[in-house]
């Protein structure tokens, strides 16, 4: 039991950390991220702009809440949804044969390829594990009852 909780804590810190980092990097340069969203050639100019303004904040905040253990289930759900969306987007981009920078980590981004899909899938598995293991929406780790 304790071991399971330790693993979940590591998952939380890791997934939360990745999302905080990827969010902050994009928050620092919204126009560059807007262009990266545009590069996927899935949404138009206006929607890419809106995504670039808000998605990074959603990533960073959901990551921060997950890390802090506040709204654990809600933040894990949001992160899982985002990861699911990223996986579909990258897979669709690969099928369409579009060569694109993933746009995941600002200037440190690399190509959207099958390795990226695998990484997203691992992150998704971790966040789903957190989601299903977390006790309730309002239960922080301190509220854990025996």
């Amino acid at each position: 039991m304790t071991r399971k909780r330790a693993v979940l804590l590591v998952f939380r810190l890791f997934v939360g950390g990745v999302f905080i980092y990827s969010g902050v990097v994009k928050i620092l340069d919204p126009l560059a991220f807007a262009q990266q969203v545009r590069n996927y050639r899935t949404v138009g100019q206006d929607l890419a702009f809106v995504v670039a303004l808000y998605l990074p904040w959603l990533e960073a905040l959901a990551g921060a809440f997950l890390m802090a253990g506040i709204f654990k289930k809600a933040s894990a759900a949001l992160i899982s949804l985002m990861l699911g969306g990223f996986i579909v987007l990258v897979a669709a981009t690969m099928v369409r044969g579009i060569d694109v920078d993933c746009g995941c980590f600002g200037a440190l981004s690399r190509r959207a390829d099958w390795r990226l899909l695998l990484e997203d899938a691992v992150l998704l598995a971790m966040s789903l594990a957190i989601f299903f293991a977390a006790r309730g929406a309002r239960s922080g780790s301190a509220a854990h009852k025996r």
Binding site: Y54, W57, L58, F71, A74, S75, A77, L78, A137, R138
Partner: peptide, 14 residues
């Protein structure tokens, strides 16, 4: 509770 939490985070991000 999950919906509320998620809505709160989304609104905060907006």
């Amino acid at each position: 509770g999950i919906w509320r939490g998620a809505a709160f985070i989304v609104l905060l991000a907006v």
